[in-house]
Design a protein around this nucleic acid. Structure first.
Lengths: 231, 231
DNA sequence: ACCTGAACACCGTTCAAGT
DNA sequence: ACCTGAACACCGTTCAAGT
């Protein structure tokens, strides 16, 4: 055992932007968006707010850096299976983002914020570029690339965001099947005059798999891209 | 002129949930999401925080009610042109939501939050139902309705959200063409090794029309729905 | 039943002062 | 150059007290 028994353990490593961002991601993952405050962060890092402001301009920049660090890992996945078609690569990329947002639900709101900026933040251009390169490889006319890549990216963010929101709404202790079952049952009990559609798909909701349905949606858009634009 | 010249004008109408929501929407529209606080709201309504809490449970409920009141108007648009195809109706609905989010940029983040809840809030089911009914009318197999309606809704929210974010990023005084021109120029100057796609579409970005491109994306998804599922 | 307004706990951020 | 920690302005929310 160590001889020092100090209750408030002194920091061993020096503070750095990297260590701060790392701690921020850990807090966001563990406690959600509201769990990251300068109080909790200074406590976790055994320092004061001034120290953090030395490395980071403000909370917005900290959130942007946290987003960046998580997304960078997703974009770094290797795509070098030689037999991969552009379609396969788009599916892999889309699913990687979907899973990342599921693992880090706070990413969803953050990516939406990130889409602003003048002209953009630094993550979204890289995501857009990744989709865009693979859309170009599909062989559709160049005039359609912009719209096609945008549609893909918007769908991915929208679907992943909803999935993250659902996960967040799931109170700890309730499992997913139970949650979906309850949701579907509510839908079945809706007024059939006002909600005929929701009633008719209640069964599908009860049984669907999120990732599988997400990929079906990606395929639907890929079909739309190639079907409406034979090069 | 009135004889009363009181500096802090006394409320004439009684407070009501409706009047509070109305004031909240006005503040959100005028000042953005950060412009709505209980201080600004009490000031505008010439009352105290306690009075608002009598009519509304908390800020979340207030934001939900504000969202509801704006979206209700969009969903109330008449679709009774007898010659309208389901496709036309879907385009009208999508564009209505797109324009509403452009007019009230705070809607975008709020709709994302609204998507959570157990099972859902009260706006999103109505939007989902509206898309769903029209997807069903396309004549594709029932097994595909859920995925198709989800894809449409996610695309609309994603695209509209980005458009709202762009509008917000636009500093007052700078006009849109100028903004897009600047963005495209930045893209053109990116490293061609890392960003070949963004460089290649810079021209399209400079000239595109947001609403038109949005509708092209809707058509792309409609094509995907019908092409991959001949009933 | 409806409203008042002081008070509470908490937030992001600043800054003079230390090493 | 890097860090400390008290202080500031502001936030959502509560609640005893009034009418």
């Amino acid at each position: 055992m160590a001889t020092r028994t100090s209750r408030t353990p002194r920091r061993t490593e020096a503070l750095s932007r990297e260590r701060i961002v790392e701690a921020a991601v850990a807090l966001l993952d563990a406690e959600g968006e509201s769990g990251l405050t300068f109080r909790t962060l200074t406590e976790r890092l055994a320092t004061g707010p001034g120290a953090i402001y030395w490395h980071v301009a403000n909370k917005g920049e900290l959130l942007a850096a946290a987003t960046d660090s998580v997304i960078a890992d997703v974009l770094a996945i290797e795509h070098d299976e030689p037999s991969d078609t552009p379609q396969d690569e788009i599916r892999t990329l889309a699913l990687g983002l979907f899973d990342a947002i599921a693992d880090h639900p706070w990413l969803s709101a953050q990516l939406a914020v990130q889409l602003s900026g003048s002209p953009w933040g630094s993550v979204t251009p890289r995501i857009f570029e990744s989709f865009g390169q693979r859309v170009a490889a599909l062989g559709v006319p160049e005039a359609t690339w912009f719209t096609a890549a945008s549609a893909l990216m918007h769908y991915v963010f929208g679907a992943a965001g909803q999935n993250a929101a659902n996960a967040r709404a799931l109170e700890p202790g309730v499992d997913r099947a139970e949650f979906l079952h309850a949701a579907a049952t509510v839908w079945e009990e809706l007024d059939p005059g006002e909600y005929p559609f929701m009633k008719s798909i209640a069964d599908q909701v009860r049984e669907h798999d999120d990732r599988e349905q997400f990929l079906t949606g990606v395929d639907l858009i890929l079909t739309g891209i190639t079907a409406s634009n034979r090069a």
